[in-house]
Each structure stands twice: as structure tokens, then as C-alpha cells.
Nucleic acid binder design. Structure first.
Length: 279
DNA sequence: CTGTGGTCCTGTATGC
DNA sequence: TGCATACAGGACCACA
């Protein structure tokens, strides 16, 4: 499940492999990944062909691949999106959705099983695509303002997990790293934002930034083949997880079994002793 | 305005 | 063996 560390790993791989290359041909094999682009498959193919990539950029979980003409290709990996760098004659992976044949003879491929992700042309989006102007800066960016995030969280009655997952509050966190962050900070996921002190929220967000940075250092987290970098390699942060996916296993601090609870059509993992439920 | 919960998608694992 | 169901969950959107 690509969150900030996984998306940044992909961005680094793209920077190495596509910067300066020109798109010679585009082939979209499925309409859904280009659904946000006006004109569908044919429009997407025609509008992207001939463009030259500059250095890929990222905000939170969004990637954009600027072109040297001021436009950009906006990309989101969703749940299962991957960029892969191949030779055109390489066999296709099962869920290959879009092909970009590049001027250096390589082929950039967008592969996506569940197709929650997508690609679109962002007109004038090289600096910051207007489509993602509402996405807040992420904790690893220079624009990140932690005091502003703390203030925003304290204005809300919502639970801390929902707030951290809201990309308009702070971007980059997904289900895995929120659970890890809250476990480290010993805060229950349903604790209302306004019931947390400035100091406590500062601790939560400090842990969050650390978790994201550590996971990036490890190349991200992979449970299966759904997240890999552009070379098809997996990260190894899974072994660093203390809460996520550890239902029934002992808390690494106190030994109590980690609990899984349904939350927003997914799961929350936490230690019932270290992370006391709010009243 | 804020807050909440449904929905889109496919593949794998599990249960009867 | 075969079919049904649960689960994985990021972002958006309808609605209270």
C-alpha cells in the first residue's frame, strides 16, 4: 500500500530513469487509469506523446512528472499502482495498464491491479498541479509547518487517526504509518483532536515524521507484490512494524496482544494497554 | 461550514 | 470442487 515512503522510493527511481527522456509513443490498455483525463484513452495518448520529462516531484502520496514545457503528468498510485522501467520487448505483467515508449529505447509502464490510481495531464502543472493544491504539505517537505498542523487538529472533534489520514490536514500518511505513529506516541486512534494538548500533538507528529523517514530509509514497506520500486524490488520496513498487521501478537513494549478493530472499512491496530481508549 | 460513511476496483484467502 | 464472502484501503463525494 503505497504511502509517502513508498511513493518517494518510486519518485527516486523515476528521477534516475526517465528524466530528460522524450515520450515517443503512448498506449493506454485500459480506460480506468486515465479516467481523469478529458478525452479518454485516445486523448491521453495524443496529449502525452512528444513530451520530454523533467525531474519528478511529489507531495504526500501524489507524484507529478513535469515536462520541459510547463505541463506535467499527474500520477497517483492508489492502492496498487506501480511504475516499472522495462525494455519494450519484455513480457507484460498481468495488470499492465499504460505504456510509454521513451527516446532512449526503454519503456515506462504503469501497472495497477485495483485501479484506484490514475494518470492525467496537468496543464501548467509543472511547479504544482492545481488539481492537488488542496493537498497539505507532507512531513518530509520544506513547506511542512507542524505548528499549523497541530492547530488544525486541535480545532476538530474528529478522531486523531481520521485527521492524520485526511490529506488536507497533513499529507503522506496512510493506514500503516498512522497506526505505527500512534503506537509509538501511545495515543488511541479515536482520541478527538481537540482533546490532545499542543505538547502531546507535537510528540505524535514528531513520531510520525520519524516513522516516515525510517521507512523511506528502508525503501518502504511491502507485504506482497503490490508495492515495489521501479525495478520491481521490495522495501524491507515490514520488519520494523510494531502495530500494523500484528493482531494477537505481543506489544513490543508491554506484551499485551495487539488488537485489530474495524475502522472506516479497514482496520486499526493498537495496543489496548499502551493506547487507552478515550472515554 | 464540519463530520461521517459509502463507493470504486481486483485478487487472494477463508468458510461452508 | 465450487461458490460466496471478507479483506486489502486512498481519495472522493453525497448527505446530515
Amino acid at each position: 500500500m503505497p504511502e509517502l515512503p513508498e511513493v518517494e522510493s518510486v519518485r527516486l527511481g523515476l528521477a534516475e530513469n526517465i528524466t530528460g527522456r522524450t515520450i515517443e509513443a503512448v498506449e493506454a490498455l485500459h480506460p480506468r487509469p486515465v479516467r481523469k483525463h478529458d478525452g479518454g484513452i485516445a486523448g491521453f495518448e495524443a496529449d502525452l506523446a512528444g513530451r520530454t520529462f523533467a525531474i519528478p516531484r511529489r507531495r504526500g502520496k501524489y507524484l507529478w512528472l513535469p515536462f520541459d514545457d510547463g505541463d506535467a503528468m499527474l500520477a497517483h498510485l492508489g492502492m496498487s499502482g506501480q511504475f516499472r522501467v522495462n525494455h519494450p520487448e519484455d513480457e507484460h505483467l498481468r495488470n499492465t495498464r499504460v505504456l510509454f515508449t521513451l527516446s532512449d529505447g526503454t519503456q515506462l509502464r504503469f501497472v495497477d491491479q485495483r485501479m484506484f490510481g490514475g494518470l492525467s495531464l496537468s496543464s501548467g502543472g509543472a511547479e504544482l498541479p492545481p488539481e492537488i493544491a488542496h493537498i497539505a504539505p507532507d512531513p518530509l517537505s520544506t513547506e511542512y509547518d507542524q505548528e499549523a498542523v497541530v492547530a488544525r487538529i486541535r480545532r476538530s472533534r474528529s478522531g486523531i487517526k481520521r485527521l492524520l489520514l485526511s490529506q488536507t490536514v497533513v499529507s503522506g500518511y496512510g493506514n500503516i504509518y498512522v497506526d505505527e505513529t500512534l503506537w509509538r506516541a501511545r495515543v488511541h486512534y479515536e482520541k478527538p483532536g481537540m482533546e490532545l494538548s499542543v505538547r502531546r500533538l507535537g510528540e505524535v507528529l514528531d513520531h510520525g515524521r520519524e516513522v516516515l523517514a525510517e521507512a523511506l530509509e528502508a525503501g518502504g514497506t511491502s507485504f506482497d507484490a503490490l508495492y515495489v520500486n521501479v525495478n520491481g524490488e521490495s522495501g524491507y520496513f515490514e520488519r520494523g512494524l510494531a502495530a500494523y498487521g500484528r493482531e494477537g501478537q505481543p506489544c513490543l513494549r508491554c506484551g499485551r496482544p495487539i488488537v485489530r478493530e474495524p475502522f472506516m472499512n479497514r482496520s486499526s491496530y493498537f495496543c489496548p494497554a499502551c493506547q487507552k481508549a478515550p472515554r
